[in-house]
């Protein structure tokens, strides 16, 4: 019995130490959404359980190995012949069973809490593609490559992908949802930002190539600032074809693969593209003109530039954009000459 009392005390001590140590090092990023608070409460319970079970087993083993160690004088000493105890076995089957059922129950509650629906939620359509994010605000008719969110209001994201599986994740919000291709596989994610500031959407599912760089800024702003941003987006920017084209290219992920400053990317840079001379995979040499550009956007595989892969650029830009929009982008590309 004496041994058990000592061990119990040691277990409790170690549990407390481990628990407070884990709390003190700051395991998780800041809590920037109301979901984060709920989820972190569950993390807290987990940490407590981990600290306890770890201490329980390590202390028992360590204590036994040290205190009951072999007497140097009797190297052949054998342990006691104890083969088992059904009572104990039942206890340590049933108690953990109860514990895990309880944790699962807490987990179910926690999940339900994080998924609470606010009918006033702000609708945003999120599109992921190799390798960019694009955000549509259907209520306002805005498309942006930065996710602007008003603080304190629930957002409802409808997520879809252009190509492969991506995953929407903002560590400070804690929640994550894979983004699947296919019209019937649009997924929904809700959260409520509670802290203003700058964050990052990270793509958390390996999606090939530049997966590491598939990040976009998230700006959580006050209501007023959000309204200002909307106003600015809606009216107060230049309406000339060149600027319109630049915005289109920016918001649709072209810059994920094409740079405008001469750097080589997944696709050829646009800087100095217009009127430059290019060699195609077919061996043909051409001088880039408007027709070529139009074709390169609408039907990219028909003329692959030497040194770049086919099938990488989406094939459906022709359907996605109106001719006017494409012409605007061409004007923009021309302006980079």
């Amino acid at each position: 019995m004496k041994h058990f009392s000592i061990v119990s005390i040691l277990v409790i001590l170690l549990t407390v130490i481990v628990y407070f140590f884990l709390q003190a090092v700051g395991l998780l990023p800041t809590q920037a959404s109301s979901q984060a608070i709920i989820i972190d409460q569950l993390f807290d319970i987990h940490i407590g359980i981990i600290a306890f079970l770890f201490s329980l087993i390590v202390v028992f083993i360590g204590y036994s190995l040290i205190v009951f160690r072999r007497n140097k004088q009797m190297p052949d000493e054998e342990g006691q012949h104890i083969t088992g105890s059904s009572k104990l076995e039942i206890v340590w089957t049933l108690v953990p069973l109860a514990v895990v059922i309880f944790i699962s129950y807490l987990g179910a509650i926690s999940l339900a809490e994080t998924r609470k629906i606010d009918p006033q939620a702000l609708d945003i359509k999120v599109t992921g593609g190799q390798w960019y994010w694009s955000f549509d605000y259907p209520d306002y008719g805005i498309t942006s490559d930065v996710l602007y969110l008003p603080v304190g209001r629930q957002v409802k994201l409808s997520l879809t992908s252009m190509d492969v599986i991506h995953s929407f994740w903002v560590p400070e919000f804690r929640v994550k949802q894979d983004v699947l291709p296919g019209e019937n596989l649009v997924k929904e994610l809700r959260f409520t930002p509670i802290e203003t500031g700058d964050f990052m959407v990270l793509c958390a599912e390996l999606c090939g190539g530049a997966h590491a760089y598939m990040n976009s800024p998230v700006k959580v702003v006050t209501d007023g600032e959000f309204q200002d941003w909307i106003d600015e987006e809606l009216g107060n920017f230049p309406q000339d074809p060149e600027s319109l084209g630049e915005r289109l290219a920016k918001n649709n992920g072209c810059f994920g693969c094409h740079s405008v400053d001469g750097k080589d990317g997944v696709g050829p840079t646009w800087k100095g593209l217009y009127r430059s001379e290019k060699t195609l995979v077919s061996g043909e040499k051409i001088v880039v003109g408007e027709d070529y550009l139009y074709n390169a956007i609408v039907n990219p595989n028909s003329q692959i530039v030497l040194g770049y892969p086919a099938n990488v650029m989406a094939q459906n830009y022709g359907e996605l954009f109106t001719d006017e929009e494409i012409n605007n982008m061409i004007t923009f590309i021309k302006s980079l000459e």
Binding site: Q35, I39, L106, R174, K176
Partner: peptide
């Protein structure tokens, strides 16, 4: 012991991948 935090859905939303 690091398994159960992955096993409860809402914490796994953070931990996955």
């Amino acid at each position: 012991l690091t398994g159960p935090p992955n096993g409860t859905v809402s914490t796994d939303l953070h931990l996955h991948d």
